[in-house]
Design a protein around this nucleic acid. Sequence first.
DNA 1: CCACCCTTGTGTACGATGTCCACATTCGGA
DNA 2: TCCGAATGTGGACATCGTACACAAGGGTGG
Lengths: 214, 214
Amino acid sequence: MAATGSGTPKRDTYRHGDLRNALIEAGFELARQGGPEAVVLRAATRQAGVAPNAAYRHFADRGALLHAVSQAAMAEVARTMEAEQAALPHVPDAAAAARGRFRAVGTGYLRFAQEEPGLFRTAFHVPGDMTYATDDTAAGPGGKTPFELLGAALDDLVEAGLLPEDRRPGAEFLAWSAVHGLAMLLIDGPLRGLHAAQAHDAGHRLIDMIERGI
Amino acid sequence: MAATGSGTPKRDTYRHGDLRNALIEAGFELARQGGPEAVVLRAATRQAGVAPNAAYRHFADRGALLHAVSQAAMAEVARTMEAEQAALPHVPDAAAAARGRFRAVGTGYLRFAQEEPGLFRTAFHVPGDMTYATDDTAAGPGGKTPFELLGAALDDLVEAGLLPEDRRPGAEFLAWSAVHGLAMLLIDGPLRGLHAAQAHDAGHRLIDMIERGI
DNA sequence: CCACCCTTGTGTACGATGTCCACATTCGGA
DNA sequence: TCCGAATGTGGACATCGTACACAAGGGTGG
């Protein structure tokens, strides 16, 4: 008999070799199209060509697997933010540069939400999982998590004199709140179905609000 | 044999009489402690003292029941907002009054999120359900949904001269984004566990940002 | 007043999921 | 080489959503 229908055909060795990561990867793909609810333990093991229970050798339960996938998704968000910052045109003015990096954090976040709603929801919709927003496992290539990227951008803003120092403490919560809320509106809410350009405009306007009000 | 353990004892009539509403109410309680995932069809029918399949005479599927519960939860949010506005001390200045009503929309929303996280998440976490944010079924005693309450408050702000007219269109999305985002932080995120007073402060600061930036 | 029929609730059943337990296989070190 | 700790397997169970066939009962036309 050949392969067992879906997914990767059965491996030849009894041991898998890297099951933990294989499960996370499989869960990641499930999350991409379907969000957190779609991260089904049995489906992931199926994809890895392994019995359902094998997962319990690497994760305490479904929640633990979902958590790992969530962290991977957050890392992907960080990657997108960094890319957005890296794509910024070089400007000589330090203040303008700091401002650009700050805005890029927001636009990267929003772009990811619209391009990968499933992963986005997995990264941030999981109840209680945002507590781990500073875990290394959620960091991007630069070693920073989305939250830390935002914090760094705000620090730059202060250093550039664009944000009064006494307004800095807790500012990440204000900024994050606004951007995250808009992301939800774009994914599940009344703003769903906006074209990329329109969404970009909405993001622009929202970040304007933040800059003015923070 | 006596009652069947959990929930309301068996009814005496074959017909239930008002099963639809009984199911919504049962689902509402499930949602209160456990959020949307806790709205389990079989649990609701159990509570109503009815066979699982009876639910299908009133709802197409679990999703339809959840939707109804979600709308009920939104109505509860509207009720809280209205109460917050009603509790406002009377001020003679029309502009100050408009400003107070606007802020009350936000604080009511945030208070509800913290006091009833399960219902809050049910009202707004359900993917795609926020499209129905203007359905009558989600309205409070005053006949307005949370979204509509926000819109009215913004209109008042314009009328009072506190918000430039050209900034009005789409402003509800900006304001809602910020407040909703903070609510998520308070429920599931790093700000979870804040005391009511601290949360109130955070809300105060966030609404300041909105007022300045909108 | 009564027989019929449409609505509402029941019973049984199926596939899927998360998870528990006992057992099998394999790898790495003593 | 042998043995124990890791790692996978198999089978079982409770729970869930839901489909299908049937039963009960209330409203309505005759």
